[in-house]
Design a protein around this nucleic acid. Structure first.
Lengths: 203, 203, 203, 203
DNA sequence: CATGAATGAGAGTTCATTCAT
DNA sequence: GATGAATGAACTCTCATTCAT
């Protein structure tokens, strides 16, 4: 019993080790730089070993994406317990942007990486992402229901706010902020977030 | 002299030929599918010939990015002649989104592709992009000067609106709209643009 | 003693288990698809376990060949009890062809597979095969002795008839009958066997 | 003109060089030992070079098979000009066996190798083989038409004789003649061929 | 007795790039 | 100016085999 669970744990640890290395490499070199050999080298195992834990590169990549989705969910979790829908929405947005800026690689993986996205195999990741998204949309709907906005088109409201947050983060993640001096970028992001909140209030 | 200039012209034509092929392939197969041999095949020259016009793949890629920047500038040009700054801003935004949705490959290249971005070599593209961006910012400033908004923080306003537009287009370009039925996506984008315009009016 | 023999028995059973799995896989996927891991998976043991019962892949392969030889001998056995040498010869031939068509995998292994054939290790299989072959040759000799043929060159007669049978089966086993419609192939084989029998009668 | 044809010739020569190496390796190590790198090494080129002349391993293999089919056709050609159908048939058979014994590797490739046999791509080889086979069958039919046999079932006659020849050669090619002393094998084959001819005469 | 874990060697294939002609 | 010919380095993935436990 104890042995089985120890084995289980060791296997899981190895998967995490691999995934961690994959993550690091993805962070440093992007999807193109992520190859089996580089992972193997980093963890000082042979390439063949990787295949004992992940069927192929795709599976590994999906695991990585799932990791990212889970990290995001965890990051947004605190917002969920806020009762007032408007407060919740604002905090949700703040954490979303915060996540993207703090973990650009995770964000990239989730929302910017062009990659083999066979729907079926990546189901788990997709499900997880959908759950988070649904929760977000429901929060907007709750705001509408509570008459926080004049507009009642909750779908468009949700989408519009998402566009802003996604755009903001994406410009950072894919380094398209060069026209702004590095030291001002963070401030600009904060101000912009505040501004969109204000704009939303007048919706 | 005449000969020299003819040579010059021919050289330029060849570069355009190569670039055109590169663009087509990029459009069809993405960055990963873009390789020297496929370009050579399409224009019916040998791979080695490419290297007579572009030092290496990077240089070709930069030229392609420049192409994209020019295409974008051309697309946005009509807005420039609108006198009223607010009208101009709205049209500018509309055209920006329009460009992104109509030419996802160009947009991708400009704002989403992670690529060898050695600043120096890509200067031209950068300059062009900056010009367009400056013009945009100036339009926002003109609106502020003309008291179209209560807020006077033109930098943040410009950035915020850009975030929305960029986010909107990016979600399309990198196919993160799967949770919305395909036939509703266009409508949603239009509604969202209208909404952000309205939100901006109350700034 | 009892313990030792039980161990012996268990060991033999395990070897059979492995061999059975190997056979199935060989049947389904041919020699190329036969690998240690697939065998291990099928019997739900680890690959390493296989090596406790067979030194290496070669040894396992030889055991498989022996199996095939035994299966063939068993298939031909009924002919052995026929007294009349000519009747026996005909039945022997019929059963030989029958075996080949019914068990193309066994036949392939015995007569068509190019494989590591180190003589020494495969001795058992060889001995078994020789016995069957000798019996066949003796039957032909008995026919000659009993003046069933005008010709007395029993070696050539035996060889010639074998060539026909082997050729017939081989064309099936290695799928070189494509020029004949599938539904006619069986009939053709039967007719050909009848014809060679008739031809032999007039020898 | 001269240049183009020289290039053409050089390309063809290189293809032959590769094919020759492939043939040698196939001869020495069978299909399994035939890999791109071994070919490259033998001709002292890099593996990548092979791919300039053959799309992939399959194509190379098909070319090899075609080579074999052509070699066989050429070998059998002399028989075609014999007018008397029976004489032609006998000579055809003699040459068929002769080809198999002299070029066991070619014969193996054509009639014994289990290999990726996608019909479509290998069409040429198949067509060539069919032509030869048809010619053979027609010869048997001509014999029947000329009343050389009592039997009129030309299809079965053709097939039966083929079985014998194929069996005879196959036993040599796949080395299943070990029970006969090496020095007697050739003689045995000759005698057997004579015997089947005689048997056929009494059909 | 059995195995989980690991690997070295090697498979086919692709690609950016070079260079003599 | 153009290219045919070539390649080194890289890629993903598979397999027989070993060995400490």
């Amino acid at each position: 019993m104890g042995i089985a669970s120890r084995k289980e744990r060791e296997k899981a640890e190895m998967r995490r080790l691999i995934l961690g290395a994959a993550h690091d490499i993805f962070k440093e070199n992007g999807y193109d730089g992520l190859n089996i050999r580089s992972i193997a080298e980093r963890i000082e195992y042979s390439p063949a070993t990787i295949y004992l834990y992940y069927k192929d590169k795709n599976e590994l990549f999906f695991a990585l994406q799932y990791e990212a989705a889970a990290a995001k969910r965890d990051h947004l979790l605190p917002a969920a317990s806020i009762e007032d829908p408007w407060q919740r929405l604002v905090e949700f947005g703040r954490l979303y942007v915060d996540f993207g800026l703090k973990h650009p690689d995770w964000y990239d993986l989730l929302f910017l990486t062009r990659a083999p996205m066979e729907h079926i195999e990546n189901q788990d990741c997709w499900t997880l992402g959908m759950a988070t998204h649904s929760f977000y949309v429901e929060t907007v709907e709750a705001c509408v229901a509570a008459r926080y906005f004049k507009s009642t088109d909750s779908a468009t409201i949700a989408y519009t706010l998402w566009c802003h947050a996604h755009g903001l983060v994406s410009l950072f993640v894919r380094e398209r902020m060069r026209m702004y001096p590095p030291e001002e970028r963070g401030e600009l992001a904060r101000k912009s977030f505040a501004m969109i909140v204000k704009m939303a209030e007048s919706l």
